[in-house]
């Protein structure tokens, strides 16, 4: 697998994977996309990196704690569900900030929930990939 072309190309391709994953993440509310699929795209980028440089390099370069990723994902999702309760709305009801950002659009609890999904899935897929590669 570790040819020169592949190793060189992956340095350029990985940021593109991440950028594409962000694009999918933010367009997910009204179009195909969202946290889950964006996380899969991001994880694929990291798995390619792992194939090119070996698992140890990837782990050292990005220094990810997969369990903490999963935990923060759950925390973000729970937070998005509980913030509305805190302000007196229904459990999991969508709250939006009044301002609208260029490109991204409105921010609110649904995007926080999706961020939770994103982190959880990245953590889960990377943990699975790490375990499989280590064997």
């Amino acid at each position: 697998m570790r040819t020169l072309i592949y190793v060189t190309a992956i340095r350029i391709i990985l940021p593109m994977f991440l950028l594409f994953s962000l694009y999918l993440f933010f367009r997910g509310h009204d179009h195909p996309g969202g946290g889950f699929i964006a996380a899969l795209v991001a994880s694929v980028g990291f798995i390619f990196h792992m194939l090119a440089f070996g698992i140890e390099t990837t782990k050292v370069t990005y220094n990810v704690n997969t369990f903490a990723l999963m935990g923060s994902g759950l925390a973000a999702a729970l937070l998005s569900a509980l913030i509305p309760v805190w302000v007196g709305k229904n459990f999991m009801e969508a709250l939006w900030l009044p301002i609208e950002l260029p490109v991204i659009g409105k921010l609110g609890t649904p995007i926080l929930f999706d961020l939770g999904v994103y982190l959880l899935v990245v953590g889960m897929v990377l943990k699975t990939a790490f375990s499989l590669f280590e064997d």
Partner: peptide, 12 residues
């Protein structure tokens, strides 16, 4: 939700 919250804390 408490069990989920506790499971999340366990992950950290």
């Amino acid at each position: 939700l408490t069990p989920l919250l506790a499971a999340m804390a366990c992950l950290f």
